[in-house]
Computed example of a mutant assay.
Amino acid sequence: MKLIYVASPYAGDIEKNTEFAKKACRHVMNEGHAFFAPHLLYPQLLNDANPDERQAGLDMGIAVLGKCDELWACGDRISSGMQAEIDLAKQLGIPICYVSEEQILGPLDPVYAIWAKAREDGPLAGQLGFLCENRRLLLFSSQSETEVRIKDLRNLCLNTSPAAVYQCVDYSVEYASDRRMHLETLQELDMIPAFTPDKFEVKSQAYGNTGGGCMVGTVQFYLPELDKSVWVNCNDECVTITSADYMWNEDHSESWERYDDVLLYQAGFDDALPDDVEPWLPMIKKALEYTIDQETRYFQGRAFSLPTAWLPESIRENADPEYLAWLQAEGKEAQVVYGSNIEMEKDYPQNGQGTFDMTVPS
Results as ranks from 00 to 15, higher is better:
Met358Ser: 14
Asp121Gly: 03
Leu137Asp: 06
Glu184Ser: 04
Pro123Trp: 05
Leu153Cys: 06
Tyr338Thr: 15
Ala84Gln: 07
Ala34Gly: 09
Leu311Ala: 07
Gly57Trp: 03
Arg258Gln: 02
Glu254Arg: 09
Pro43Ser: 03
Glu85Trp: 06
Leu92Ser: 10
Asn159Asp: 08
Ala118Val: 10
Ala329Asp: 11
Gln83Thr: 13
Asp260Ser: 01
Glu147Thr: 02
Pro162Tyr: 03
Ser100Glu: 14
Trp310Ala: 00
Ala267Asp: 02
Thr218Pro: 07
Asp87Trp: 02
Thr18Tyr: 05
Ala163Arg: 09
Pro9Ser: 01
Leu306Gly: 05
Gln335His: 14
Cys157Gly: 02
Leu226Ala: 00
Glu313Tyr: 13
Lys2Ile: 08
Met344Val: 15
Ser362Arg: 13
Ala309Phe: 11
Gly129Met: 09
Cys157Thr: 07
Ser362Glu: 15
Leu131Phe: 06
Tyr207Glu: 00
Leu156Gly: 09
Thr218Gly: 02
Thr160Ser: 15
Leu153Gly: 05
Val169Thr: 11
Leu158Asp: 13
Ala116Arg: 03
Glu31Met: 13
Met60Gln: 13
Ser79Gly: 08
Leu58Ala: 03
Ser362Phe: 14
Thr355Val: 12
Ile342Ala: 07
Val165Gln: 13
Glu70Gly: 05
Arg135Tyr: 13
Ala63Pro: 04
Ile4Thr: 05
Ile292Asp: 08
Pro9Phe: 00
Trp256Asn: 07
Lys117Asn: 10
Lys285Val: 04
Ala56Glu: 15
Lys199Cys: 13
Tyr259Ala: 04
Asp227Cys: 11
Asn235Arg: 01
Thr308Lys: 03
Ser8Cys: 14
Tyr338Phe: 15
Arg154Met: 12
Pro9Thr: 01
Val336Asp: 06
Asn233Arg: 01
Asn17Trp: 00
Gly352Asn: 10
